[in-house]
Write a protein that binds this DNA or RNA. Structure first.
Lengths: 225, 225
DNA sequence: GAAGGCTCTGTGAATCTGCTGAGAAACCCA
DNA sequence: TGGGTTTCTCAGCAGATTCACAGAGCCTTC
């Protein structure tokens, strides 16, 4: 089930949105402003955030900027009273994925929400990805560090691709295991460490600096230094 | 689904464009400059390229010239900060198909993109295809490597044609099976390997280098070296 | 500073994947 | 009908890949 976080300072509107979306069998979490919302993003990991453009404490634009600064790529639907084209452009440039001008019909909101959630699922995985001097193209299945081609096995390639899709984000061991190996056990298996080791050996050939850092007790990150 | 390649050095604008066009259910690929973009044109075969006029490394005009020099006829929409008529003329003469002056409203961009894509639409499947020293004509159903005619059976011909339509792209086993054999089973069938073997034997007669590479665990690619 | 838990890595075995040859079945065309 | 061509199954092989195990090393905590 999808989770939606609604951030709005108007209690009446908030309640209306909550009812409407709960009725669509969505899991709804609410906050009154951006400041309240940020920790909720961490804890609830919503699939979509609906935020008001104008809010006290921290408005929608600042909120999205803070979100993106933390490398969070959650979809954001911005609600705005103004319909001016500059705002629209600003909202999109600021990192929102869509906007909706108030007042709006509930049906339109529902349609937008579903469209955005569909996009979350259908996000194409065949974009080239890169970080630092690593590049990886899922279409040609070629990966390189600097100008040297890396010869990777299937699992190594998938693992590097996963890391590259979330640069600077710490990926938990269990998350990596379930995304690459497709199960979620708690066993005495150290297959993940093994593959991290394989990747490091290939990535750090001829003395290049380490990019896959281990975060003790949690997992691994792709990060420089 | 159409693929659009966006080439722009401004990360913010790039992201905005990407979001806007992804929302139009387009497949979006991005690059920061012409130098990065050229190989992506080869691998992703976009239906439309959106390029900035002014970019570091290789600017939009040079990029289009290089593209056309390679006989690539992909549509190009040029973004330019300047609105001067000379630039407009230069851009079109340089081989771009349309131009758009910055700043622009997202809606206008979307409209232009759709207009250009409508022009592309009818993509004929019976164009001759070639890669390296292999050529194949779907109309006469003749194929040759270098100057030697290849005598191919129906299935061999279809398989080679499929590979030639996606040079350098790794084609998954299941995709090939469903496109050539029209089913998508999970059985212990190795008919694909057999036909790859047949094709290789004919393509690599008198010691020519291998062009059909196998990608273990995934599928096959047509690629030199 | 020591104990205990994580993490890393080398060795090697089991498994998997893809390639090939032999040949059976289906098809085509006279 | 019959010969040749094409498609496809089967089985065995070789090499690549995956993974288990165990010892060493490192970090954290007390």
């Amino acid at each position: 089930m999808h989770t939606v976080l609604i951030v709005d300072d108007d209690p009446k509107l908030l309640k209306m949105l909550q009812r409407t979306l709960t009725y669509e069998t969505l899991n709804v979490v609410t906050a009154a402003n951006g400041l309240e919302a940020l920790p909720l993003v961490q804890t609830h990991k919503p699939n979509l955030i609906i935020a008001d453009w104008m809010m006290p404490k921290m408005n929608g634009v600042t909120f999205v900027q803070r979100l993106r600064a933390e490398d969070n790529k959650t979809m954001v639907l911005m609600l705005t009273a103004r319909d001016a084209i500059e705002d629209r452009v600003m909202g999109l440039e600021g990192g929102a994925d869509d906007y909706l001008a108030k007042p709006f019909a509930p049906a339109e909101l529902v349609a937008r929400v579903h469209a955005l959630l569909r996009r979350v699922q259908a996000e194409p995985q065949n974009q080239p990805a890169s970080y630092a001097d690593i590049t990886l193209d899922p279409v040609t299945r070629q990966a390189q560090r600097g100008d040297t081609e890396l010869s990777l096995t299937l699992t190594e390639f998938n693992l590097l691709h996963l890391l590259l899709r979330h640069p600077r984000q710490v990926l938990e061991r269990s998350r990596i295991l379930s995304e690459i190996w497709g199960y979620d056990f708690g066993g005495n298996d150290n297959v993940l460490e093994i593959y991290i080791g394989y990747l490091r050996k290939k990535l750090e050939a001829d003395g290049r600096p380490r990019l896959i850092q281990t975060v003790r007790g949690v997992g691994y990150v792709l990060r420089e230094e």
